[in-house]
Computed example of a mutant assay.
Amino acid sequence: MTESSLRIAFLASSRFPIRQPFAGGLESHVWYLARALAADGHRVTLFAGPGSDPALGCTDLEVRTLELSAVARADASMPSMQFMTEHHAYLQLMLDLGGRLADAFDVIHNHSLHYLPVAMAATVSTPILCTLHTPPTPWLESALAVSRGQGAHFAAVSAHTAASWQHVVGELEVIPNGVDLADWPIGEGGNRLIWFGRLVPEKGAHLAITAARRAGFPLVLAGPISDTDYFERSIRPLLNRDVVYLGHLAQPALAAAIGRSAAALVTPVWDEPYGLVVAEALACGTPVAAIARGGIPEVLTLDCGRLVPPDDLDALVAAIPQTVALSRAAARARAAAHCSERTMVDAYVNTYRRLIRQPVHGKPFRLDGVR
């Protein structure tokens, strides 16, 4: 290893490849971070679903498949096949990282939501950084309760997410997600609104449709249909010439659609750990009207958007014309100041180097309240 070049393993979802169009914000984040690190001369290796983007310049770690016998499948303890497939993939990966790949990497960056990279971190001699992309989950809390965080280090994507994990890991570093401004160019705006993201109930696209209609603005939607029942029940019946679903767009087409919109609506009905769609909209110069949940208030300011209380649709409707009137230049400036990919990459590299210099298995975390 030289000071200028690191060998970095990225652990992502074993189901989804790191390629466009992205399955979700986590895959988008990993793609951009891996690309930026590779462009800086670091050697990045991905563990993700088969078929990740070869243009990233990264190598792949094999996702091991599972073939269970008929007897095992018929056992009363057999969980879903998806659970078993993911369990098998991460179990094999962690055993490999502690065995045949023990000297292959300088640092391991875990972006997965699976419990085994945390539970088995102490079996790996390479430093492991776990970015917390979500609120606490029962599986990860269980892994931490058993392992006491031994062998792993943690960072959160927002102060809100850090606070939600404080009862588990105590104080931890915050490294906000960043966007590449070159890939999200400022657009001219337009007369319509846009909502984009995964089409699932917790993202609240149905609220955006209702608010746009009441405010008198046409709306376009973009993103993967991650919950078919929700889409067919709550979204498709509302589509017409003023509410149009554009599909699951690759990033360049998505950026163009955002740039042609007067404002973006962000309508979560859960606490967003960060709110990457807010950063992407601002980068395109598109002001944002958002429900103030999770980490979103850390990104959005009065000069580039409006925040409304949860469960207050009237406030969201009233905020739309105010948001449309905001400066597109101010939105872009906020993205450059707060959501810079360069700042994010440099913060991660500094953290990698600090972990490499430290003993791998230091004192365990104090897990107040977790038994």
Rank of each mutant, 00 (worst) to 15 (best):
Y32S: 08
A255M: 04
L221Q: 05
L66D: 02
A119E: 13
V118M: 01
Y348W: 04
A143P: 04
K203V: 01
N110E: 03
A333W: 00
P136C: 06
A12H: 08
A38P: 01
G275D: 09
C284M: 07
R64N: 01
D106W: 06
Q322W: 03
V288L: 04
V269Q: 07
L95W: 08
S14A: 13
L367V: 14
S327A: 03
A122S: 11
L97S: 07
W31V: 05
A215C: 14
D368M: 15
R214S: 07
D180A: 05
T2R: 11
A208V: 05
I258L: 12
V324P: 10
G170A: 13
G189D: 13
T131W: 12
T267S: 09
E232G: 01
M120G: 00
I18T: 09
E3F: 06
L6M: 12
V349S: 01
G305L: 02
A262D: 13
F83H: 15
H248W: 05
L207D: 07
R334F: 00
G41N: 10
S77A: 11
A263R: 12
P79N: 09
A262Q: 14
G25I: 05
A39L: 06
G170W: 06
F154Y: 15
P287L: 08
T161A: 07
C58Y: 04
W139E: 10
F217L: 15
A145I: 04
R64C: 01
V299Q: 12
V278C: 15
T131I: 13
R328C: 03
C304N: 11
R233C: 09
A255D: 05
C304T: 09
P224Q: 13
T126S: 12
A325F: 05
V269K: 00
S4H: 13
P117Y: 04
T131P: 15
V308D: 13
G189H: 14
A256N: 13
I209M: 11
D103Y: 04
G259Q: 13
A222Q: 03
Y348H: 15
G98N: 10
A347F: 00
F83N: 12
D311I: 01
S125G: 12
D96T: 08
P135S: 11
G99S: 11
H167E: 04
Q166Y: 02
G362N: 14
E188R: 01
V63F: 00
M120N: 02
D103N: 14
F10H: 13
C339P: 01
A281D: 03
I291E: 14
T65D: 04
R306D: 03
S158C: 06
A263S: 10
G294D: 12
I225L: 07
T59K: 13
F47H: 05
L238F: 02
S142M: 14
D346H: 01
V244P: 09
S4P: 08
G369F: 09
V179T: 10
L56D: 06
T210A: 15
I175Q: 10
G49Y: 10
I128Y: 00
P117D: 02
T137D: 00
W270N: 05
Y115V: 03
L91W: 05
L219C: 13
F47L: 09
G41E: 10
L93E: 06
C339L: 02
